[in-house]
Every structure is written in C-alpha cells, then in structure tokens.
Design a binder for these strands. Structure first.
Lengths: 190, 190
DNA sequence: GCCACAATAGTACGGTCGTTCTATTCGCGC
DNA sequence: GCGCGAATAGAACGACCGTACTATTGTGGC
C-alpha cells in the first residue's frame, strides 16, 4: 500500500504543473503518462476516470496551497503581520497560486464537482484573508470601521492583477505595483 | 462576397460565446458546426486551420470589446467621468469582458500568436484606463501626484476580483464590493 | 438567364482521446 | 522464499479530433 500512493503523488505533482499551462480539460492521460514514462493504462488505474483525475488534481493543489501558503502564514503573529504574510506568500509562491487563477477562469462557467472544489478553495482563501483582517482590526492594527471582507476582496484583486500583468503581459513592474497597491490598502485602513 | 462574411460573423459570435465556457482550446470545429447547423467542412473552409479560427475568435472578441466598451466610454466627457464610464461598461457588459479574463488565464503560459493577440488587447485596455486617468489628473479631477498606470492597475484588479467573486463563487455582493472599491480608489486620488 | 466563382456539403483518413479487458510484474506478510 | 494481492503494462475498442480532397449548391455581374 506504499508504492501506489507514492506514484500517485508523483502523477498529481506533474499533472498540477501541466494543468497550469494546458488547463484541466487540456490535461490528457496519454501525454501525462508519456511525460512520466508510465503506461496509459497503468496511470489510468490510479483514478478510474478522467473526471476523478481532475478532481484529484484540484485537491492535491489545494493541499499544497494550504500547507505552503496558508499554514505558514498562520504562524506569523496576529494582526497586520499575518495578513501581510498571507499576501506575500501568495505572491512569492507562484507555483500553485497560479494554478488556482487558471482553474478559476477555466471552470467558472462549468458547473460540476470540479468547479465546486475550486470554488471552495478560493472561498477558503478569501475567508483566511478576511479572518486575518478581522484579527488585525481587533488587535487595533487597523481602524475599527474596516470591513474585513471588503479588504480581503480588494487585496485579492491586487493579487489577480499582479498575476495577469506578470504572467500574460510579462511586465516586471507588476510586483512593485502590487506592493504599492497593498501598502496603500493597508495604510488606508490603518 | 457578402454571404460568406455574414456566416463568418455568425460563426465567430457563437464561437466567442462557446469559448467563454470551454476555452479556446476546448473549442471544437465539429461541435461548433453542429451548434450552427453547418457542415464541419463548410465551417472549416472559412478559416483553413484551427489556429486561424482561434485567432479570428480573439480578434472578433477584441473588436466587440472595443466597440461596446471602450469606444462608447470615450464619448463621455474627459476626466473622472470617462474613467468611471470605462469601468462601468466593463462590469455591466459581462459578455465579452469575461471572455478576455478566460483567455488571459488560459493563454498566459502558452506563447504563440494567440497569446500575443490577447496580451495586446489587455495591454490596450489598461492603456485606455491609464490614459483616462492621466486626463483626469490633467483636468484637475485627480491629485497631481496620482500615478495613472498605478491607478489603472488597481482598478483592473478590482474588476478581476469582481469577475471571480461573481462568476465562480456566485456571490451577489460582488458588484457592491467592486463599486465600493472603485469609489475608494477614486476618492483617495481625488 | 447564364456563368464563373464563392460558399457549403460529403466523405475519408490518420491520430489521439477515454476506457475496458487481460496479462504481467512487483512487493510484502507469513 | 512463497504466494497473493497490489501495481503496472499491453492491446484493442469506438468516438471524435483536425484536415484534405471532391462534389454540389447558391449567387451576383453581365
């Protein structure tokens, strides 16, 4: 019961990376198998259907996202530092944050379990931002009349713009712009 | 030389709508043909290759985007009103603004002419925002130390967050949040 | 009204897709 | 170290993909 899980993880890692460029629907069992030097049927047996593979990819990416972005940031001290840590980790760690931007856009008009899984992840992410913002208010780091959910919304918007400007337009100034925007949002609420 | 162009437009209209849900790569000549009650080969003859069809779709969507969002907004009086008109029209007219969010995410990691066409459109869009912002500064509607490109970046971020929250999460509060965010950005710069 | 040519349909092909079934190899408990 | 089940491979399937070729239909200029 060991070997199977190991290759399964290997498959999902590669699939996640691949999905970032070809999308979830563009993912192909044949390509994925040859990329990993596995047989198509051997790979297929791990999941049983393409839809199951897709959902496994989403959940795998979610797990990595939680353990590499959210969890570490939650160890930072309460209030504004933690809020900043969330944003910083999202921006630095393109790897899997990116795949969720891709998945959000790909699935937002395609109801089904895959879309639900992505939506749940994004919802959790915005909740994490909002909760951190609320704590910052409670700690007195941010003004009492700050709406935590509104702030989370605006912060996430900056991250999305950063993603588009950086990835699609290839503008190196994106990071600096994002930083300025984040600073302005937090300064305004301080 | 008339009939051909008419069906070509019909094809591209439907293709654009379809691409919003299945993506540009998910677009299929067979499905598109049956959806329009055309023969596969008859449709194919209009474009000659799938890549040509994809680029035609992008350019068609860009034309509609320009004529339905940008051009009307440019008729609004210079300064902040025009800037607001750009943002408002983007948000109201989901139809084709959405397809560019989809295309941005789908193509941002896939170099080629399709990606270039999308990138050029987004660049033009952000330039339109920045130019309108600059005019607003010149007119005295916004503070002299406002960075027009930075403001365009932040405005676009709000639109992207609005798109994600509304489409993927189905949160009806997205529009109100976006409006508040836009108001705050403009108030801060006024 | 005819005719040249644009526009569309029909058919076929090689390739790849997801999936199934059967066979082979591997790894671990006894 | 043997045996059994888990893990992987192999071959085959029908379906649909993009594309090429040929045939048919429609249509605007004379």
């Amino acid at each position: 019961m060991k070997k199977g899980d190991a290759t399964r993880t290997t498959i999902l890692d590669r699939a996640t990376t691949l999905a970032r460029t070809v999308g979830l629907e563009g993912l192909t069992i044949g390509q994925l198998a040859t990329a990993l030097e596995l047989s198509k049927s051997g790979l297929f047996a791990h999941f049983g259907s393409k839809e199951a593979l897709q959902i496994a990819v989403i959940e795998h990416a979610r797990d990595r996202f939680v353990s590499e972005v959210i969890a570490p940031a939650l160890k930072v001290s309460r209030g504004t530092p933690r809020l900043r840590a969330l944003v910083d980790r999202w921006m630095k760690w393109g790897e899997d944050a990116c795949v969720f931007v891709q998945l959000s856009a790909e699935l937002d008009d395609r109801p089904g379990p895959a879309r639900d899984a992505v939506a749940a992840t994004i919802r959790d992410w915005m909740d994490a931002l909002a909760t951190a913002a609320k704590i910052a208010v409670d700690e007195g780091h941010l003004r009492a009349d700050t709406d935590p959910k509104q702030l989370a919304f605006e912060l996430y918007g900056v991250m999305l713009a950063y993603h588009t400007v950086g990835r699609l337009l290839g503008d190196p100034k994106g990071a600096a712009r994002a930083r300025r925007a984040i600073d302005a949002l937090l300064a305004r609420a301080a």
